[in-house]
Nucleic acid binder design. Structure first.
Lengths: 334, 334
DNA sequence: CTGAAAGCGCTTACAG
DNA sequence: CTGAAAGCGCTTACAG
């Protein structure tokens, strides 16, 4: 058995209250006592039990992170940012991968409650009413990442999806493209779906370009859907000179399809992605994309959550700046 | 405040002992009592407190996962496998990203101890003596993933690195290549470094091919080092027709360099990787590689750890089968 | 079938 | 400066 505070007290010839005091750097003991206690701690190799502490303090120093999403490239960068800040501030993180499965999500939420996490980061999925309800009943801080909600005043940290796409498509237009297609993500997705399509539409409109419905195809952000989306586009709109994809994975799918068909990127065809996952710089040619700084987003979310936990104050949501990173998949037609 | 077992007892007019019994599905109460208690639980929306439970049971139902490694593509697949099995068996997982930093690793180890995790999975990094010592003093089960150790009888689950490379290089030879270079990982790395180089050397030898020291370059498994390694190779050994890289990331780096220089893969040059990360199938052309089933490896490690936790028995290490995945970066010269 | 009591390893008033 | 005691929310002998 590991030694407890009691063993330390015994060995140092003081009460457990005193041991607790020096352990927690409180005041109220002589230097001599401190020395005695510390020596006993050393000799026994004592380590505090965070569980016992958690029970009494009603704080576990752990936060839960839910990933309803499944895309590894995306989630892991986020997780790194979250994990880094949290650990640097003495919190551990518990991960829950729900694979978009509602039952699982609810089950994990309950688990996090039983484990008494101090707060939850809910990432990159739609916050359904039923999730919100249990989150609400848990009475702990929550912050949303790469998603947002109308339900209540729950802070989020994300990029402005609409604006990011608007800027991207405008960029494509500035390079002389006028027949621009889009491979959208999930149709109707209120976060990463609809707003991005609207950004595309608006950019077209503001530049006096007509929208052709056959220029727009839907997928689910995946590589696979990027491939098939591109095939569809090539068939039904061969005049298109550039495509904007709602995720880098889909863009890379488009790139691979176009390449496989013997076309040259950007010579014959231009492609632009969304996210700037690590993979974007590894494909050939490197992908031009609009960047969401995922690591930073994770870090900031972690910071906000911990602030809420420790101060009890409500924090502001944050829109994180996106940026266009020019690499080599867009041809300048001007 | 959330309701406790005491509130339930009060409401149901029984003792807390009885509530505890029905909560844990023990025997020793009438149907009527069960009904009463369950009704009270319902009405109060009571949820057990796993922290209090953990204190008394000396089981927290959580496992810690250490990732000394930094490569996202690699770690996340592993994590998914671990997480899936663990959650399906009522364990949560706590992640610790140590970035190969020794101080951090030690700090996290201590954290996991304080949090009283029931077991630890140590992944993809060298298990230094100092880590082993604290692990040992914690007195909880540990399993190693994609690494192994001589220190003691700590079970691991991994692929046979030596054999995987031996098979890969033999494959390249069977396709008619005789001037085969290798972009190795970290020189001297006892797990993913040296054994892989030895597999390469041995395959050459067994097929009567001489080893040229200028055919072998070292890196750190990264995309970047794959790029520069390839450049070096092209310069000092232009006659080479194929390269085997010790990681998919490095292979993809080589691919991008070769492509950038105007060569065609596999027409002018063949490339083979190691891992089969998701990205391998997304590059153009899709990468031929030797697969380690990371998700499965994670799952199995999780399973072994939980078995050890619950039965107290020591489990056997497992060598997981690798397999060559033929895609389109290796030309058949025969 | 049921409850009173002790105890898990801590922290925190309270009293001296 | 220090200790005895209560209590965090549970589980588990023990007794009836």
């Amino acid at each position: 058995m590991n030694p407890t505070i009691k063993d330390v007290a015994l060995k140092a010839n003081v009460s457990i209250a005193t041991v607790s005091r020096v352990l927690n750097n409180l005041t109220g003991y002589s230097d001599q006592t401190r020395l005695k206690v510390n020596r006993a701690i050393q000799e026994l190799g004592y380590q505090p039990n965070a569980i016992a502490r958690g029970l009494i303090n009603k704080r576990t120093q752990t936060i839960g992170v839910m990933f309803p999403d499944v895309s590894s490239a995306f989630s892991y960068d986020l997780l790194q940012g979250i994990d880094k800040f949290a650990h640097d501030h003495n919190y551990s993180v518990m991960v829950c991968n729900t694979d978009q499965n509602g039952i699982r999500t609810l089950k994990y939420l309950q688990l996090l409650r039983e484990k008494q996490v101090d707060g939850i980061i809910f990432s990159s999925g739609v916050l359904k009413k039923e999730y919100y309800d249990v989150l609400d009943s848990m009475n702990i801080p929550v912050v949303l990442v790469s998603t947002q909600t109308d339900f209540a005043n729950v802070p989020y940290v994300k990029v402005d999806d609409y604006q990011a796409v608007y800027d991207s498509v405008s960029y494509l237009i500035s390079k002389g493209h006028s027949k621009i297609a889009m491979i959208s993500g999930t149709e109707g997705d209120p976060i990463a779906g609809t707003p991005r399509v609207e950004g595309y539409l608006k950019a077209l409109e503001d530049h006096g370009l007509p929208f052709e419905s056959r220029y727009l195809v839907y997928g689910d952000f995946s590589f696979q859907d990027g491939c098939t989306g591109m095939e569809t586009l090539l068939e039904q709109a061969p005049e298109v000179t550039a495509v904007f994809a709602a995720s880098d994975e889909a863009a890379i799918g488009a790139l691979s399809t176009v390449t496989r068909l013997g076309m040259n990127v950007p010579g014959d065809f231009s492609i632009m992605g969304y996210d700037d996952i690590r993979m974007a710089q590894m494909v050939s040619p490197p992908l031009t994309t609009v960047r969401q700084p995922l690591f930073d987003i994770g870090r900031i979310a972690s910071e906000k959550l911990i602030t809420m936990i420790e101060t009890g104050e409500v924090v502001q949501s944050a829109i994180i700046a996106h940026s266009i990173v020019e690499r080599q998949t867009v041809r300048n037609l001007t």
